[in-house]
């Protein structure tokens, strides 16, 4: 049993899971790991039809498009007690920037502000709202050297720093081995990484070098976009090294679900052509 003892007299929190575009498209296992975690923590998990939070429009000079998408999201998720997102970047877009999109005369502003109050990034929700502590750790990674990349929006818009470290200790008996410049951007930056490809490459190369210098066999993070960037660079630099650093989203480790190969790594199922 690794369930948190739940108080049966209390109704279960109804949580709307907003998985984000990258998870939806590239790595569904993060979505399932997040759902598993939330259920273990005593929540009912719902996945309403969903799409993009609008960040790509917000950061590319299209506030009207963002506003329309924002209002969509508010309506799609309004029925739940909480909205939980396994990403500080999309979480930051909603919590920090949605209210800025509606001016004070807009009747929707109040609803948007109230909505943002119940939106949480996953690790913040688990630590600060639920204070989630499994009875027994899902994994024991105490013998592993693992480092953590603090993604920018989570760190600076939502103050996510201690939450993942606390949870990794509780759920995987893991103390993070800090790399140098863990709080420096990996160079992803949305459309930045394709528009300013060479600058982005310089930044991700620095990041990957810091990860390798930390001596870690695995790097974790809370935002899939950054992790795709980091994994893609590690794999490009060392295509033939079977011991290259593995890259995973924190939700997978917290849920103890490491059966899916690490990001961009060989899957036995794929090998067999399944």
């Amino acid at each position: 049993m690794i369930e948190t003892p739940s108080n049966s007299s209390k109704p279960k929190p109804q949580v709307g899971l907003f998985v984000t575009c990258p998870v939806d498209l590239v790595r569904p296992s993060i979505g399932f790991a997040t759902a598993t975690l939330l259920e273990r923590a005593g929540c009912d998990v719902h996945v309403p039809p969903q799409s993009c939070c609008g960040q790509v429009a917000l950061n590319n000079g299209q506030p009207e498009q963002t506003r329309a998408l924002a209002w969509n999201i508010v309506q799609q998720f309004d029925e739940y007690d909480y909205v939980v997102i396994p990403s500080g970047s999309c979480g930051g877009t909603i919590k920090t920037h949605y209210p800025e999109l509606f001016d004070e005369h807009d009747q929707r502003l109040q609803a948007v502000e109230a909505f943002c109050e119940k939106v949480f990034e996953l690790t913040t929700f688990l630590t600060q709202v639920l204070d989630y502590t499994p009875v027994q750790a899902a994994l024991d990674l105490s013998a592993e050297t693992v480092t953590y990349h603090d993604s920018c929006a989570g760190l600076r818009e939502l103050n996510i720093k201690q939450q993942p470290r606390t949870l990794l200790k509780r759920c995987a008996n893991l103390d993070i081995t800090e790399m140098q410049d863990t709080d420096v951007c990996c160079g992803f930056g949305g459309t930045f990484c394709v528009k300013y490809s060479d600058v982005s490459n310089h930044m991700v190369t620095n990041k990957v070098n810091n990860i390798r210098r930390s001596g870690a066999s695995m790097v974790l993070g809370g935002d899939l976009s950054c992790l795709l960037n980091i994994a893609g660079k590690l794999q490009r630099l060392e295509p033939d090294n079977p011991n290259r650093v593995q890259v995973r989203h924190i939700a997978e480790v917290l849920a103890g679900e490491l059966s899916t190969p690490a990001i961009g790594e060989h899957s036995p199922a794929l090998e067999k052509g399944e």
């Binding site: 590239v26 979505g31 039809p49 490459n201 893609g232 794999q235 490009r236």
Partner: peptide
């Protein structure tokens, strides 16, 4: 369509269907 990305890094192959469909 993502040569800006793949010029410098690999891109992991996604699964056959989205999270929403699998859910």
């Amino acid at each position: 369509f993502l040569s800006g990305w793949t010029r410098h890094r690999d891109f992991p192959a996604p699964e056959k269907s989205s999270f929403q469909s699998q859910w």
